[in-house]
Amino acid sequence: MSPEADRPQGRAAALVEVFARLRKDSRVGLMTHIVFGYPTVEASRHLVDIMARSGVDLIEVQLPFSDPTADGPTITHACQKALDRGVRVADGLAFAREVTKKYAVPILFMSYFNVVFNYHEKGEARRGVAAFAKAAAGAGAAGLIIPDLPPEEDQERYPETCREHGLHPIYVTSPNVNDRRLEAIAKAASGFVYATSRTGTTGREVQIAMEELGRFLDRAHRLCKLPVAVGFSISKREQIEALSGKAEMAVVGSHLIQVYEKLGLSALEREIRTLAGRKD
């Protein structure tokens, strides 16, 4: 893409700013995750509030899907519960509109491609990527994370359509992926690349093989020429610190849901502050 024509505006620009600031401070950033509507929409509001106040750098808002193939049991269960309570995609968009007005921290939508592909404005017949991208940008999101849309499927000019609406198309990649595929992601992606620390699904505590991960992150940086966020099996401040010099951002998802479920909101706040490296 030509940097002049596609210079990000608004929230997309704020996301680029986040990474510039992290580089300046030589700090590994923190992206935290919620499943919208789990356990309730009100709880999602509290969670985002805590995250924003605790100095989280990015927030990933997962719009629940009935068949979340990349997620482990914790997030799959959370999605199912939210859907059982009747949460709709439109509610998630309204929620984002509300929180992006209130807080400066950029938010990204994460979901599965069928949700994007089937989205339509009320009363409009036309469904698809453009309709969703317009709505997501209108709600103040900075980007989309769609793990089941590989670059070669390029549905409805997905990456271009995202950028035209001021959204970063964030691609998820993994250590077993070859250079050719990383290069394809490099062509499509902007903002940053989401690298999983290992293969498998989200939310299982697994010892991360740091040396192997380091080699993969080098490769991802070299081929994609974008900041890299690392997710999957990250639940401790030490792990985030260990990413220093290897990645720009750490992503914590399932762990926070587990803390919230077991220990409640105030414990979650302490946990997020610890993860964010806040000493106060």
Binding site: T69, A70, F113, P147, D148, L149, P150, E152, E153, Y171, V172, T173, S174, N176, V177, N178, R181, I185, T196, T199, G200
Partner: peptide
């Protein structure tokens, strides 16, 4: 097509 997470692509 092949709409899967990248880790399944290999």
């Amino acid at each position: 097509g092949r709409y899967v997470p990248e880790m399944l692509a290999p």
